[in-house]
């Protein structure tokens, strides 16, 4: 049974990642194993244009996640407070960005912000806005799932002790939601880091996130440089996710 599993699993899932990792250190790959070990791609991938792309990606992902988290949490809290019918409308509204192709989100953002009253085309803001729109849906979904799981007894106990709704939200409900909030933040961050399709439609020349750079590299045939960039992207994503999950375990064991 396990041999079947590994026959399917390893080539399909583990191999791609290992291959990318291997290729990032190589100059040639024309037989079973890559050849021409080098770290040159990394040197290229950690300075100049590539480094700038990395910081661009990080800044975009962080700001988009924060915006999405704030908007998603707020909307989820509002939905929980509203009646059933409104909540359904809100639910439907917030899942739309999941269903709509991200290319179309990119196109839509492009169309909307290329004309007055908001002329943001060619600025970094349009990229950040598109990312925020794309990931807000995920933030909303995970936060509202967490809110329904939260025992109302906590908020009620707090209210009976004389805490106003705002105080209850700030001192009781948000701290209790913190693990879910960080999980949602991690998800948003990872999605935004890897987002390519909407970004392709929107990015201005001075704001090139990593995925676009990877695409550009592979498109002109520089596969090995692309791999190195991809490894940098994966590493950055994983590091942030790891940090977020550290915060999360701390928060849940407090």
């Amino acid at each position: 049974m396990w041999t079947v599993f590994f026959l399917l699993f390893v080539p399909l899932f583990a191999l791609p990642l290992l291959v990318v990792l291997g290729a990032s250190f190589a100059t040639h790959w024309s037989s079973v194993l890559p050849s021409g070990f080098t770290t040159g791609h990394y040197e290229a991938a950690t300075r100049g244009e590539a480094l700038q792309a990395l910081t661009t990606s990080l800044v975009t992902a962080v700001s988009a996640s924060l915006v999405a988290l704030a908007a998603g949490t707020w909307a989820a809290l509002a939905a929980a407070a509203l009646g059933k019918r409104y909540r359904k409308v809100l639910d439907a509204l917030f899942v739309l960005p999941v269903a709509v192709p991200s290319v179309v989100v990119g196109l839509a953002t492009l169309v909307a912000f290329s004309q007055p009253p908001m002329l943001l085309n060619g600025t970094r803001w349009i990229v950040i806005i598109a990312h925020a729109v794309l990931v807000t849906a995920f933030a909303y979904q995970s936060v509202s799932a967490a809110i329904t799981r939260l025992d109302p007894a906590y908020a009620q106990a707090a209210a009976s002790l004389g805490a106003s709704p705002a105080y209850v939200l700030w001192r009781v409900r948000l701290p209790l939601l913190l693990p879910s909030l960080t999980a949602a933040a991690g998800l948003c961050f990872a999605l935004s880091m890897g987002e390519l399709s909407a970004t392709m439609m929107l990015y201005p020349p001075d704001w090139t996130p990593l995925p676009v750079l990877i695409y550009a590299a592979t498109d002109r045939g520089a596969l090995f440089t692309g791999s190195a960039l991809a490894v940098v992207l994966m590493a950055a994503t994983l590091l942030v996710l790891l940090a977020v999950s550290r915060i999360r375990t701390r928060a849940s064991y407090r």
Binding site: L15, P16, L17, V19, V20, G22, A23, W29, P34, G186, L187, A190, L191, M193, G194, E195, L196, P211, I214, Y215, T218, L223, G226, S227, A230, L233, M234, T237, L241
Partner: peptide, 15 residues
């Protein structure tokens, strides 16, 4: 699941 989809394609190019 947290990695972007194009990584897979990139890897398949090598494989």
């Amino acid at each position: 699941l947290s990695f972007p989809s194009f990584l897979i394609t990139l890897a398949l190019l090598f494989v």
